[in-house]
Simulated scan of single mutants.
Amino acid sequence: MKEIIRLFPDHFQTLLLKDVRWGEIQEIRLRVHKRIETLGADSHKVLNSPLLSPQDLSHILNQISQFSLYRFKDQLKDGFITIEGGHRVGLAGKANTVNDSVETLKYISFMNIRIARSKPGQAERLLPYLYHNQKWTSTLIIGPPHSGKTTILRDLARTISSENQLHPSSKVAIVDERSEIAASLRGIPQLDVGSRTDVMDACPKVQGMMMMIRSMSPEILIVDEIGSIDDAEAIKEATFTGVEVICSVHGKDFRSVLKRPSTKILMEEGIFQRYVILERLLPSRPHTLTILDERGKQLVHFKGEREYGVDRRCNDLVRNDMGRI
């Protein structure tokens, strides 16, 4: 995690090397006049570090922005900056607003460094269900924060663009609005997204999807975190061009996402043929994953991270909540 450690002033770096379990943590929290806090899946630890001064956070912010915070003004509006390695640094302080819209952040006093990890092989168990009748299916991945949505999207891109015994390789395009899927640095992915994958980095999904369809002629389009009606309309338009879309959305379960206006449009019009439901990753319980068909009927339920048991019993309960589908 040298790309994170180098952000800190020298007097913190030895402590971070010695006291942080880099293989386990998910976040590093920084607050002015507080000690450094690290968080795992279901635990947190306050390091025996010096209190962070405003100067310390200013030093870290200068390293993150390479002493040119103005270059990141658009990302500041969203409250985060993505750094080398795909790690995402959330920022909070005083919001500067113009006409009730956030123009920028100033007096930044709080940071949250979210650790990005590439885990090849996470998508393997999905493939027999997402590759159906000799073609890939448009798929919505649903899960709360820290459930592995982005990790699975990244590994699906890598797998779909590589040939194996189950399927031929396909052309994949990623619209990486938050620079988290491919973790591109100066346009070059830092994480493995596959040999036939093209990436549009730091581009809004609505514009980026149409740009990639026109310029790169993908067979599969991958995007992260549907959030607005405009996102939904762009996804619908993309599928009308003959491209399959695999995307993710924050949600607790199938029903909760069906209530959101942006995803309800897509679900009711049958844009997705598969739904992947994830639970928050916690070491205290096995990871579970459920795959549903286009009508919300359970196809398979996985329990456990690697040596998982499989329950293929169908569950028709969710079908009653699908309205006119």
Rank of each mutant, 00 (worst) to 15 (best):
S228D: 04
S256R: 03
R255V: 12
N320Y: 09
F67G: 02
T104M: 12
Q55S: 09
S248T: 15
E124P: 02
P204R: 07
T38R: 00
I25G: 01
M209P: 08
I174L: 08
N99K: 12
K106M: 13
V318Q: 06
V249K: 04
S65P: 12
R71P: 01
L69I: 15
V199H: 02
S170M: 07
K303M: 12
Q207N: 06
N48I: 09
L153A: 03
F67H: 13
L282A: 07
I25F: 11
S65R: 07
M209W: 11
E279Y: 08
L39A: 14
D316M: 15
R29L: 14
T151D: 02
T82R: 04
R6C: 07
L166N: 07
W22H: 06
L289A: 01
R158Q: 13
L191M: 09
T97P: 08
I60W: 08
L130V: 15
S147P: 08
H87I: 12
E177Y: 03
K77G: 12
T263Y: 05
K264M: 04
L52I: 13
S256L: 03
K303Q: 13
E225V: 11
S262V: 05
K171M: 11
H167C: 01
K73N: 15
T137R: 14
S248V: 10
T290S: 10
D231R: 04
T159C: 08
Q190T: 11
R312M: 14
T159I: 09
G90Q: 13
H87D: 09
L281D: 05
K303Y: 01
F272A: 05
K2R: 12
R29C: 06
V243D: 03
G187K: 05
P261H: 06
M111G: 14
E163R: 12
V223G: 00
S161L: 00
L61R: 03
A157F: 02
H301M: 01
I213M: 08
T104F: 12
H301K: 15
D293F: 02
H44D: 10
L30W: 06
Q26M: 11
I160V: 13
I141A: 07
R255H: 10
